[in-house]
Design a protein around this nucleic acid. Structure first.
Lengths: 356, 356
DNA sequence: TTGAAAGCGTTACCAG
DNA sequence: CTGGTAACGCTTTCAA
């Protein structure tokens, strides 16, 4: 018998992995001189019994021996695991990392755990990951993947799997938690128009991302309301990557009649635009105003603090978790929208005379 | 009875949360005309029985009905959960996000799940998080938190909790997976010395982070080997944040005799240095060479692609998972070191004459 | 090789 | 209010 195994002195020694805790409800019941079922009741809030002296005494004993119930055993009975799954395309993207971190925090305080699956934007991988998570018996799913427009959510609904769409939505679903992208796009564009810009380019993201579509809609609406027409050449679809911002900005800036301002629908791409402009030696923001979206941590940094739209990602994550919890409990939930504010920094200014 | 619950047609209806799958081994056994224990055996590789026609037939049936065993029930018997816990300070840091993502990928392929806890560098929160994870019965822990020098790992060892230290190590432990920080620091410094720099500043990170200490050691060793003395004023401790790089660089650059090159022990801080230099209107890399560490995705981007040291974070994550798995299986493991390479980009160059 | 039976640590039902 | 008991779905000894 190894030294390591010594402290587990049952004959039928559990092979390995029996980490830490040893106290069971049975032992606790013995200690308290009651039946284990009584212990079980004493530990679950909500009943009137929970308040009784007996129950309090039992809990005191439980605390004193640092009792931790075995959730696996409990889950076997209750069919609930106290876990949720979160599907994200990638964690190398700051916004998604922060979102997931916020979800984890929100969950921790409610004693639930959030399992993540990284899908890399691949619909097949996404499905696979979701199934793996479901195989792990998560109680529900938070989906942030880009291509939620597909049939996948419908499948989930059909299987009675509770889920919410976060940072994304599609037209049909009533379980979305998003920021007000249209309003955000509107705010940004209005800001630029008020500064005097009349040729504003938008690096608009992909059509399959509802966030991008909403921001573009806001861009269009702001132009319409201001009576300014949008130049079709200055509306450019893209992915969400830095490189897209860099490439598209480079193209525009080397054209005969470049825009005086560029709205990139996320900060990453806006940084790409900044880099493209700097590479060409442009004076910022005089010769080119640049606005992003999301207000990621690096957006505020010198030498070119970025004007951008901000949402409270923590609030969004909490709303998503709350919404999912409600759905797991069988309640209906409505869509939720988180407000967006404009953060004006150094990267936007009136167009210079020469650039006009 | 709600429409939702309809498909579960047992009288004793499980309250909620019974997501998806319904097939149990018992049902499967019925289908195959064998006993459930036989099914159980047919499903676990490694035995000779696993190869037998009977076993293959059973697995075929299992596949056809999309059988997924209930790991919670299994765990109740085996005392193993197939989960590990990962403690990270924050996911908003790209390196840590990518590390965790890599751990998740490594785990997924081995059918284990990685639960993350975000500690925010707070030792108390860390302990709390670890206990929560342990309460969830994770089989082991990967620790990347900064302050592993404390007594916490020893406590874990005492409780027979398998763990590995990743991205960090302390002197005493034999379960570390790290990159070769001293070698990396040496490479960077040697590169700068060979370019002709003689006044090199180092923004050295905190003393409680072994990575930082290793890199600084490499810095010192390279100087010693080159016969160049280190100016004490140009060795500056810090945290790991962008702001630290910015502040310290700003201080140095406004001094009477600024360094001609700065080595920041991570890329974030190196970007802070870049920003500080740009804010002061310095010509880069002519007037100041800057080198970082980690080669995060944004390091390669224009307009100032960063010279930096690169390690294979994916390999490191895989090594950490492998090492932990081995420890969970009761094996001893030695420390593992991942090699580091130098990536020379635009931000380092010989010192200009005027700066010398 | 296979079947039977005994748990793993909970929860939930049913009596008292 | 409490105790007994039967699951939950799986693994694992022990016999056959």
């Amino acid at each position: 018998m190894t030294k390591k195994a010594r402290q587990a002195d049952t004959v039928n020694e559990p092979s390995e992995g029996a980490v830490g805790r040893r106290v069971t409800m049975d032992k606790l019941a013995e200690l308290a001189g009651v039946h284990k079922s009584t212990v079980s009741r004493a530990l679950r809030p909500g009943t009137t019994f929970y308040q009784s002296p007996t129950a309090q005494r039992i809990r005191a004993i439980a605390d004193s021996v640092d009792f931790q119930p075995d959730r696996y055993a409990a889950s076997l009975r209750t069919r609930r695991t106290g876990t949720i799954g979160v599907l994200v395309p990638r964690l190398s993207d700051n916004l998604q990392a922060v979102f997931y971190e916020s979800v984890v925090r929100a969950c921790t305080s409610q004693d639930i755990v959030a399992l993540v699956a990284v899908t890399g934007d691949d619909p097949v991988a996404e499905q696979h990951a979701a199934n793996a998570l479901l195989g792990r018996r998560v109680d529900g799913l938070i989906l942030t993947s880009t291509r939620v427009n597909g049939e996948y959510p419908a499948q989930l609904a059909q299987r009675d799997v509770p889920y919410v769409l976060a940072l994304r939505h599609n037209g049909t679903d009533h379980s979305c938690v998003v920021s007000d992208d249209r309003a955000g796009g509107y705010l940004v564009t209005q800001h630029l128009l008020e500064l005097g810009h009349r040729r504003i380019g938008i690096i608009a993201g992909p059509d399959h991302a509802s966030t991008a579509v909403g921001r573009r809609q806001g861009f269009m609406d702001a132009h319409r309301d201001a009576g300014v027409s949008v130049e079709p050449d200055l509306v450019h679809k893209s992915m969400f990557r830095w490189q897209d911002g860099y490439d598209i900005a480079t193209k525009w800036l080397s054209s005969a009649n470049p825009p005086t301002a560029i709205f990139a629908v996320n900060d990453e791409m806006a940084f790409g635009v900044v880099a493209a402009a700097q590479t060409r030696g442009l004076d910022l923001p005089g010769e080119l105003s640049i606005v992003g979206y999301n207000d990621i941590p690096s957006a505020a940094r010198p030498p070119m603090p970025l004007t951008t739209a901000r949402m409270d990602i923590g609030a969004l994550a909490r709303a998503a978790v709350d919404s999912l919890r409600a759905r797991i409990d069988g309640e209906q939930t409505a869509n939720r929208t988180i407000p967006v504010t404009l953060v004006v920094r150094k990267s936007s200014a009136p167009p210079s005379f020469s650039a006009r």
